[in-house]
Design a protein around this nucleic acid. Structure first.
Length: 271
DNA sequence: AGTGCGGCCTGTCCGC
DNA sequence: TGCGGACAGGCCGCAC
């Protein structure tokens, strides 16, 4: 579910409340997430001061003076700041309590998310170490993508979903960016020329930035740290719009199954 | 080395 | 109304 814009929206909505706070305790109601929530988290975290809340790809990093908490929202996860007296709902698996009474609560029905602790640099954690460049950073260039795609027969949509190529782009924004760039998402990544990768990089950046500006995409249940849904779903051009008119040319948007997930595109605008 | 798939989970929706 | 199956925003780990 949450892709880069939703994770970034979450980060922005909780960062100022958490920065400078000390962890008091962690309440784990369900340990069986993507990986087991580390045992004795309270013992490790109590007293640690939050230096910053950062994002890398779709991971949230709560850096402290002794290590970092790595959070992932998986397909169905969300984080909310809740008042101390709010009882947990089903699937509210983990509470992080802070010294001034704040509670950061992880909700994740499908339990594909993760809560991890690392005493070292979280960017060197095995799950993060091999990640490709941040799409909104200066490391992502048309030349980089073009080079990485050389000889690759994998379709563009899947190429963009590969975290080692590009960090944080999921199925919604890969489809949206391909549409904005006018490239068919099922075209082999290695058969896209450099000028089209220029358009694609611009499209990726613009789509992600606009999605962040609108607080992310809420298809069914995404909310930010204040419980607010995102507004980018209103302006999606192809994703989840099968049979509806392309906002550019009026042609009906098509959907095709590819691998485990759907590809959406306009057969007129995208070649 | 690059590629595709199974599997991890719950919830929702759709057709019968 | 119930039931089975498909599908959903991620991504690791494995077999080829």
């Amino acid at each position: 579910m949450p892709e880069l814009p939703e994770v970034e929206t979450t980060r922005r909505s909780v960062a100022s409340a958490l920065r400078g706070r000390r962890f008091e305790r962690v309440v784990v109601r369900e340990r069986a997430l993507r990986w087991p929530v580390p045992a004795r988290l309270t013992a490790r975290l109590a007293g640690c001061r939050v230096l910053s809340v950062e994002r890398r790809a779709k991971y949230l990093l709560m850096r402290t003076d002794r290590g970092a908490v790595i959070l992932h929202l998986g397909m169905s996860g969300s984080l909310r700041l809740v008042d101390p007296d709010v009882p947990p709902r089903p699937h509210d698996h983990v509470d992080f309590w802070f010294d001034a009474g704040q509670c950061l609560r992880l909700h994740d029905p499908r339990r594909f998310g993760a809560v991890l602790w690392t005493p070292g640099d979280p960017l060197e954690h095995p799950l993060l170490r091999e990640l490709g460049p941040e799409p909104l950073g200066s490391d992502l260039t048309p030349e980089y993508l073009h080079l990485r795609a050389r000889g690759r027969r994998r379709v563009l949509r899947d190429f963009l979903l590969d975290g080692r190529v590009l960090a944080g782009v999921g199925n919604i924004y890969a489809n949206e960016a391909a549409h904005r760039a006018g490239i068919h998402p099922l075209r082999a990544a290695g058969r896209v020329a450099l000028p089209r990768y220029r358009r694609l990089v611009t499209a990726i950046r613009d789509v992600l930035a606009e999605a962040i500006a609108r607080g992310g995409t809420t298809l069914r249940d995404f909310v930010d740290g204040h419980g607010q849904a995102g507004g980018y779903g209103d302006v999606l051009t192809v994703y989840d719009r099968e049979g509806r008119a392309c906002r550019t040319c009026g042609e009906l948007v098509r959907r095709r199954a590819h691998g485990a997930r759907s590809v959406f595109y306009c057969s007129v605008c995208q070649r």
